[in-house]
Write a protein that binds this DNA or RNA. Structure first.
Lengths: 220, 220
DNA sequence: CGCGTGTTTGATAGCAATCAAGTTCTGTGG
DNA sequence: CCACAGAACTTGATTGCTATCAAACACGCG
């Protein structure tokens, strides 16, 4: 799983533990939890001031409408912090994409243990990242075509993996619910991008970027 | 303008100034600025740690793609705080919808003047609201039909005005760019909702909710 | 009153959803 | 190791919603 972004578990642990900045906060004071594929990490209506950080595996946040339509809010990879979006009442739930390890900490407890400032820096940095990603997501959903959505998504995944190849930790349905498309349309666009020699999928969960400029023209 | 949400400027001033909570922070320590209709409050690439609060009038945040497509991130009404979305680099710009008055404060200066805790409470509350609204917006853009989008929007506007009537501070193009639709489709859906006796538009900027349950069934 | 901007309405086209099979992949048990 | 069942993915045919193109209509303002 961690191989998907090109880092070993050891590297990530080292990074999470580094105390130069506040990014190791949860590694020091959080509780380590293990979730199985599909398991719920928190529910749509539950309320608590918990902060989460991915160690290995991946997480999605999602919201289900009464008629079954679903929107995925974001995908989180190792080192990403999530669970911040639940202010007064939170509206999205979080689920494990595959088997994964998550660090969990209570904000109030972290304040006591690590100091108010460190927690604030930690949280506000995570919030800034979340807001920024969410803005990109808004533009994607509102103003891009199906082809652009998929291109943009693959570009984003490749960038997170810091390379031209990446392993997708989610299936087509999750991609569709993130992009505001149907599973069939996602599949067709992937086929189309492959036919255009822009990306290559050895398997449906792995891909390589073959023509990055073209991909950027579509999705950047 | 302030009449749009059913509060006089005096009421708003009183509210903004109240020192029981941190909501009067900018009223005490911020600078009062006046912007004309359409004027830019901050640009897409500019970077500064300024916080803004609407006193009267309204504000939109928007992002423009190179080919002219535009996505509006949010609309802000009197007492709303904005400008928080610009973490590392901010991607949206903010413009005045009509002539409006805005309070502006530098975060660093506010920390000195009002204390770290007060500023943090102020900011984190505003961030929570922003995140929550943004999540609703994501669902709206990704998984709702044109009719549902417009219904949801009108419901939201009526709720913000705390009543069954409201004055829209934005035109059809702004609505369209917020909802991820074209101006023609927005217009058609408004006509349709009117024909169904669900809402009524005396003028294109004013409306009354006639059948709230029906509107909620569509947009809730 | 006439112009310009903003909105509505109409006709048509096109993209993505839906409905419907196939095909590949994955995990399990023989 | 192979055979099989179920799930996930892909492909095809068709429909339908929303965009696009085009024109008429309202409203505010000089």
């Amino acid at each position: 799983m961690t191989a998907a972004i090109g880092l070993s578990d050891n590297h990530i642990q080292a990074f999470l533990r580094s105390s130069q900045d506040s990014s190791g906060l949860l590694a020091q004071y959080g509780v380590r939890m293990v979730y199985a594929r599909g398991e719920e990490i928190y529910a749509q209506e539950e309320d608590a001031d918990l902060i989460y950080q991915v160690v290995s595996g991946g997480v999605r946040t999602s919201r289900l409408m009464s008629d079954g339509r679903r929107q995925i809010g974001a995908f989180y990879y190792p080192s990403d912090v999530f669970g911040l979006e639940r202010g007064v009442e939170h509206r999205f739930s979080a689920e494990a994409l595959g088997d994964c390890v998550i660090l969990v900490g209570k904000k109030a407890a972290l304040n006591l243990a690590a100091g108010h400032d460190a927690v604030e820096r930690f949280v506000s940095q995570a919030v800034a990242q979340d807001l920024s990603r969410m803005q990109d997501h808004l533009l994607l959903l509102g103003r891009r075509t199906a082809c652009e959505k998929v291109a943009s998504f693959l570009l984003d995944m490749a960038d997170r993996a810091k390379g031209n190849t990446a392993e997708l930790i989610m299936g087509r349905q999750d991609m569709a619910d993130y992009l505001g498309l149907t599973i069939e349309t996602v599949s067709r666009m992937v086929t189309q991008l492959q036919a255009a020699m822009i990306v290559e999928f050895p398997t449906c969960r792995q891909f390589a970027v073959r023509n990055r400029p073209a991909l950027q023209r579509l999705g950047g």
